[in-house]
Write a protein that binds this DNA or RNA. Structure first.
Length: 333
DNA sequence: AAAACGTGGTA
DNA sequence: TTACCAAGTTT
């Protein structure tokens, strides 16, 4: 694996080449990449990571930024709890004068679970940690032909992973396993003929490596309906901030009718008067599918409650989550 | 322990 | 179009 990695490592902006020296501030860059990459593809992360480190080159810079700026900068990346935790973690790190250097210390920071703490410990600090992400999980499940279905199999997979982890090379090894998982040992249509560890792979021997890891069937997504309200006056639109908890918590948004993933909206508008029908947008979340009607108001009156008039010329800077960016496009069209 | 939590890409 | 998948964490 390590030999293969030396010749096949992907070139990624947050990564030090195999065997390379770690520069000062590396932990910040690795941490940011790991958090952005949680349930998110490399293709989506790469440009956002570049822009982020250009704007906030160090963890201290990030700790000094406002919540509002940071949440807006995360817009479109999804799983917004990551951004809320990122702010808290950055401030905790700046306060204590640097990142904790151990897996256990890192695990205490908000937003760092078992995987991410282990990954940073291994990649940024050279600790002998065993980070098990979806790639490692898949590679190991195939190597050992683990028949037990997820998530029950996690314990066994973690234990098998530990048996093949090389001492002193955990950082390179986990990155090798992730590159192997991303390019060769892929979820669908694995390229076993190119695999450097094929001879050791029990899954390959079964003839059906793609069967591993065994996954349970998914549940159906509920269909939800709701409405969002576009209130426009003199080249500005009324935006609100969503509550800290729940979907898209802490993000700027259009006012809505109270829909959630569990319940349809009331249809009730935040303002009396004439509402135009601006059509609808559909959006699929992890756990629900939403059809959002967009209603437009260009009359008189100010909506009740907190909010702000946002200039339409600068709407792209508002940091709207994708759902509301779609709704805005619909309202403007 | 199961469910909540976004989004974009691919087949 | 539907279904699945992607460097998971929190409650």
């Amino acid at each position: 694996m390590l030999d293969w990695y030396a010749g096949h490592a992907r070139s990624l902006p947050w990564r030090v080449p195999p065997g390379g020296e770690r520069p000062a501030g590396h932990a910040y860059r690795v941490w940011l990449s790991e958090v952005m990459l949680q349930q998110t593809t490399v293709a989506a992360v790469r440009p956002r990571w570049e822009a982020w480190v250009a704007r906030w080159p160090t963890v201290e810079d990030l700790a000094s930024a406002s919540d509002e700026e940071i949440m807006a900068a995360w817009a479109g990346l999804g799983y917004y709890a990551r951004a809320r935790n990122l702010v808290k973690a950055a401030r905790a790190v700046a306060e204590r004068g640097g990142f904790p250097q151990s897996e256990a210390g890192l695990r205490e920071l908000p937003g760092l679970g078992d995987y991410t703490a282990a990954a940073i410990a291994a990649i940024a600090f050279g600790e002998d940690a065993v980070p098990v992400d979806a790639n490692v999980e898949r590679v190991v499940a195939r190597l050992f032909a683990v028949d037990e279905p997820l998530p029950k199999a996690r314990k066994a997979i973690r234990a098998e992973a530990a048996t093949i982890w090389p001492e002193g090379r955990a950082g390179d090894f986990v990155q090798a396993a992730m590159d192997l998982g991303a390019t060769i040992c892929t979820a669908r249509d694995p390229k076993c003929l190119l695999c450097p560890v094929r001879e050791h792979c029990e899954g390959y021997r079964t003839g059906e490596p793609e069967r591993f890891p065994v996954k349970p069937p998914r549940k159906a997504k509920p269909e939800r309906r709701g409405a969002a309200f576009w209130i426009e006056r003199d080249g500005a639109v009324w935006l609100v901030r969503r509550p800290e908890t729940g979907m898209m918590g802490g993000m700027r948004a259009l006012p809505d009718d109270g829909w959630t993933a569990r319940v349809d909206g009331s249809g009730e508008a935040p303002l009396d008067g004439e509402w135009e029908d601006a059509g609808a947008v559909t959006h699929t979340f992890t756990h629900a599918r939403l059809t959002l009607a967009v209603k437009r108001h260009r009359g008189e009156g100010k909506p009740s409650g907190d909010g702000e008039w946002w200039l339409l010329d600068r709407l792209d800077e508002a940091g709207l989550p994708t759902l509301f960016a779609k709704a805005a496009d619909r309202a403007i069209a």
